[in-house]
Simulated scan of single mutants.
Amino acid sequence: MIPEAEPLLSVQGLKVHYPVRHGWRGKPLAVKAVDGVDLTLHTGQCLGLVGESGCGKSSIAQALLGLVPATEGVIRLDGHEITGTAKVPAMALARSAQMVFQDPMSSLNPRQTIREILSGPLRLHGMTDRAEREARVAEMLSLVGMAPEVASRYPHEFSGGQRQRLCIARALILRPKLVICDEPVSALDVSIRAQIINLLLELKDRLGIALLLISHDLGVVEHMSDRIAVMYLGRIVEEGGWREIFTAPAHPYTRALISAIPDPMHRDRAPARLGGEIPSPLSPPEGCAFHPRCPLAMPRCHSGGGPEFTRISADHRARCHLLQTGNPHV
């Protein structure tokens, strides 16, 4: 697929900091959940956002939906700015971007029928004709592989996979252009995951929407994504096409993540283990944030503002000092 000249989603210099109580001697502290992220996503693409828990993936998703304020940076979605004083109203943003959450049961109101859950957003956004709402609900249920007759039932009457299908229907009911999937299959049985993954891919192609897939499961990301961005401690450390990321990872952190993917064909292959603990986002280390755990760290990695992106190919870049030195072992 040839990307459009103008991306559907453009993120530039995004920072999301959460202020906490003052530290020693009244010094202000903040959790730097996202600390300068650039992303682009085109219509019809799936961008996989990967990294360990706590790296800032969900904070990016919440900032894109306007659920948390951006400390700095610019977010543009479908030609409209989400951040700043001229940001798009929340109701208009909801028509452009929706989210599929990790746990389908906790994201569905147990006191409402499926009809009420799906038709509620339509009423809120001005669809007053009941027959039109009923037709849209039936259309969405059919689209996700559910019979329209289930609309009178309650969430607890469905299996986990069926509930996630209903959550996907709710996300699509307003016909958004961007759907953010935050660990959409991690709470499901292994036997059901492939069905939901294939459903999301089918809907992406059929409806022409863009997907932002947030996950720590690189097997799912490899199967679904056109492009991949790897996060570590609030920053993107590598970005590129899925084939380049998985066949020629350039950053030591990316290589460690990929080596940890279970491979039944190579059971004797030991994963690249990372030493130490993830640094606190309250006080990230100077220089490259990954250097306390990196097996290839050198003195240059311990100071300064950290490495800038090095372009490896037209669609592949990474932040690593070893790339800048041309080290053949990186």
Rank of each mutant, 00 (worst) to 15 (best):
A5G: 07
P7D: 05
L8Q: 06
S10I: 01
V11G: 02
V11M: 03
Y18R: 01
Y18A: 02
W24G: 01
K27C: 09
L29Q: 15
A30Q: 14
K32I: 12
A33T: 02
V37R: 07
D38V: 04
T43Y: 03
G44L: 09
C46W: 04
G54V: 02
G54I: 02
G56W: 04
A61G: 13
L64A: 03
P69L: 03
A70N: 06
V74L: 12
I75H: 00
A86R: 15
L93A: 09
A94H: 14
S96D: 10
Q98R: 07
Q102G: 11
M105D: 09
P110C: 05
P110G: 05
L118I: 14
L118Y: 13
G120C: 11
G126L: 09
T128A: 15
V137I: 01
V137R: 02
M140L: 15
S142K: 12
L143W: 00
P148W: 13
R153H: 15
S159M: 01
G160K: 00
R163F: 06
Q164N: 02
Q164G: 00
L172A: 11
L178H: 06
I180E: 01
C181S: 04
S186M: 14
A187H: 08
D189Y: 04
I197K: 01
L200P: 05
D205S: 15
G208Q: 01
A210G: 02
S215N: 05
H216C: 07
L218V: 04
H223N: 10
R227W: 02
M231S: 11
Y232T: 06
G234E: 12
P252S: 11
I261L: 07
I261Y: 06
R267A: 07
D268V: 06
A270P: 11
S280P: 12
P281H: 10
S283R: 14
P285I: 04
G287H: 04
C294E: 11
F309Q: 08
T310S: 07
S313G: 13
L323V: 06
